[in-house]
């Protein structure tokens, strides 16, 4: 009984999705079969008329038809929804080649970049980074560095004086050596560097600047030698210019160091072959340095019988010009942002 109807309905259900092309048609179809008066719902009503012994089989068959319909319905529905979503997403497509929104951190001044690199190396070797006043007293800038009034070394520095000879714009960062030693009271060892602004009466051009930065260094401890200075300078120049760089000391003269040396590094550009940068000598002068003069130690409260040390001074501009290939010293102070922006990153070795 009703087998025929069931059979027909099954066949109908199997075919009924074939011409469904929209979600709306699909929903109508759903109502047509599964709604309150839907065909499948209706046929299930007939169970009342089915003899008891056949009810179970009838029920199973109806269920089977319902399952088949539902599965097809769900599949169809999902495919319609997917299609619709895809259409929407495709509409949302953007031109991924249009320019990005620029996000960036700011860059340090190029000199500062170099100085930070140097500071990092020296701090790792136990040097503190200190600063001192830019308006200095004669006694710190000259006298306590073994440069008494009337000494010719003063003429060479062409100092900007502010009040007589007593107050001046510091012509070197070396007064910070004196200040640091005075603070140490002759009792504690010292390791410090001082990168700072200095001033001399130079006309500004591509290689001269009336304002420039020195990187001063001072170590005072026990049994410190010129060879220790050489080893220390080795560390910093290798960090800045490469592991293959060699250091050479040449005899020189500064009032506050004895012995004094001029520090040359082997030319990183031509590796000693001779080029423009090293003026065909294979060597480039980068710093002045030496063993701290016993007089300077004494004047600042350190007993030269007990303490010894070394000091050095690099020209920050010169180092940065060499390291980054800058030809005009004014580039540091004019700040064309197109030039300074690329320095916003760390160097990865």
């Amino acid at each position: 009984m009703y087998n025929k109807e069931l059979q027909n309905l099954l066949e109908e259900v199997n075919k009924c999705f074939e011409n469904i092309n929209s979600l709306k048609d699909l929903e109508e179809l759903h109502t047509f079969y599964m709604g309150k008066n839907g065909k499948i719902t209706q046929i299930n009503q007939l169970i009342k008329e089915v003899p008891n012994e056949e009810k179970r089989e009838f029920g199973m068959k109806v269920n089977e038809i319902r399952t088949i319909f539902n599965e097809s319905y769900e599949n169809k529905k999902n495919s319609f929804l997917d299609e619709e979503l895809n259409k929407k997403l495709i509409n949302e497509a953007i031109d991924i080649t249009l320019p990005a929104t620029k996000i960036s951190i700011g860059a340090p001044n190029i000199l500062e970049k170099l100085i930070e690199t140097v500071e990092e190396v020296f701090m790792s070797m136990g040097y503190d980074v200190v600063d001192g006043p830019e308006i200095e007293e004669d006694k710190f800038n000259f006298e306590m560095l073994n440069i008494p009034k009337g000494h010719p070394a003063r003429d060479a520095q062409d100092t900007f004086y502010i009040e007589g000879e007593e107050l001046l714009l510091r012509s070197q960062t070396s007064p910070v050596q004196v200040r640091t030693m005075l603070e140490g009271k002759g009792e504690v060892p010292i390791r410090m560097i001082c990168p700072g602004k200095t001033y001399r009466r130079d006309d500004d051009d591509a290689t001269h600047s009336h304002q420039f930065m020195q990187i001063e260094g001072l170590l005072v401890d026990k049994n410190i030698s010129l060879s220790d200075l050489k080893g220390t300078i080795d560390v910093i120049v290798k960090k800045l210019f490469g592991e293959s760089i060699e250091t050479r000391f040449r005899p020189s003269y500064y009032q506050f160091t004895e012995p004094s040396v001029e520090v040359d590094i082997s030319c990183f550009n031509c590796k000693g072959e001779g080029c423009n940068i090293c003026k065909n000598t294979g060597w480039i002068t980068v710093a002045g340095a030496g063993v701290v003069h016993p007089n300077v130690l004494k004047m600042s409260g350190y007993d030269p019988e007990e303490w010894s040390g070394f000091a050095f001074g690099f020209g920050a501009e010169r180092m940065a010009m060499l390291k980054y290939g800058i030809n005009d010293i004014r580039a540091f102070y004019n700040t064309d942002l197109r030039e300074s922006r690329p320095f916003d990153r760390e160097e990865v070795e």
Partner: peptide
């Protein structure tokens, strides 16, 4: 020492590092 050193030749100096205590430097003030 300077006179002897310059005749001895600074290029003959061997690089050494100061024998001092280990610490990390700081930014001061």
């Amino acid at each position: 020492a300077e006179e002897i050193g310059r005749l001895y030749g600074y290029h003959n100096l061997v690089s050494t590092l100061p024998k001092v205590g280990i610490r990390r430097g700081k930014y001061i003030g």
